Computed example of a mutant assay.
Amino acid sequence: MKLTAKQLYSKLVDEYKIIGEQGSISFSLKDLAISIKTKDTVGNLLQEWLKAWFRMSNIDFEENTNSQTFPDFQLDKDNPKKGLLEIKSFDFDSGPGFDLANFDSYCNSLLESAFRIDSDYLILAYQMEDGIISIKNVWLKKIWELSCPSGTYPVKVQEKKGVIYNLRPSTWYSERAKFKPFSSKEEFLTALNETRYQYPQTHHSNAHWLKSVIKNYQEHTGILLEVK
């Protein structure tokens, strides 16, 4: 069954009613079984559970064999430019601490695969208490709906000793968040471009980056983005 990301989200949340459900993690070796109460493996196991749920629900998908590369799943087997789905999860009590993407890799990928900006992110927030995992909420978002400005750069990043490593998420679900998510892909691209201009390591090579991304996006989608 071929589904879009929105249809998959509706099936998971509205039909299957995953929000509020509980689970646990156990491990057994020989004659000893233990309940896992640490959060280290929850994210990976939730993704494995989702993969099993896809199969149980007869949802068409292909899994990326390299867990370190984008995307996690391809929902459209016929069109590699569509149905790109990333899975993210986080401890709701701690807030979103995951990476949206590697900064350099993402910016470079948009030069040849600008359609990637339209990928979907399926995000699961959980709480864990005494080994019991509860699904607190689930969202389906675009990258610009997760990303936001920051006090240092026009887009929020993870920076260590002057080196930018990753794009980091906003607290998009909080009304009290100081920085709100971007309202459009155009606004997000503008912030990326301005960050690349401000960042010393990409400043001198940034002259045509945005124009190249806009051109590539039009070549792939037929849509001309109007980015200021």
Rank of each mutant, 00 (worst) to 15 (best):
L84S: 04
V227K: 05
D104N: 04
S94P: 06
S28N: 08
L50R: 13
R55I: 15
L3P: 08
A125S: 14
R176V: 06
N206W: 02
K180Y: 02
P80A: 05
V163D: 04
Y126P: 03
T202Q: 05
M56F: 14
K180I: 15
S150E: 03
Q22E: 15
Q68A: 12
D104Q: 13
M56P: 05
V157S: 03
N64A: 10
Y197Q: 14
C107A: 08
Q22D: 13
W144I: 09
S174F: 11
K136Y: 13
L50S: 14
Y9N: 02
V13S: 02
E112Q: 02
E48P: 01
W144V: 01
L46W: 07
K141T: 03
L167Q: 04
V13M: 00
Y126D: 07
I123P: 00
W209Y: 08
K88L: 03
L140A: 00
L224S: 06
S147Y: 00
G222F: 01
D130S: 11
Y197L: 11
D60I: 06
T190M: 02
K82H: 05
D118H: 09
R55W: 10
P96K: 12
P169L: 12
K211R: 08
K215V: 00
E186Y: 02
F92H: 13
H220D: 14
S212L: 10
Y121A: 03
F103R: 09
M1S: 06
T221W: 04
L122M: 08
Q47M: 06
R116E: 03
Y16W: 11
F73C: 06
S109Q: 13
D104A: 07
V155P: 06
D60M: 07
P181Y: 07
L210G: 02
D76F: 08
E63P: 01
Y165R: 15
L46D: 11
S119G: 11
K211F: 02
T195G: 01
N64Y: 12
N79W: 02
A207W: 07
Q68Y: 13
E15C: 09
R168T: 00
D118C: 09
H220Q: 15
W209R: 05
S26Q: 10
Q22K: 14
M128E: 11
K161Y: 13
N102K: 15
D72F: 09
K81R: 15
L192W: 07
M56Y: 12
F90D: 05
L75G: 02
D60E: 15
N166Q: 10
T202R: 08
V155F: 05
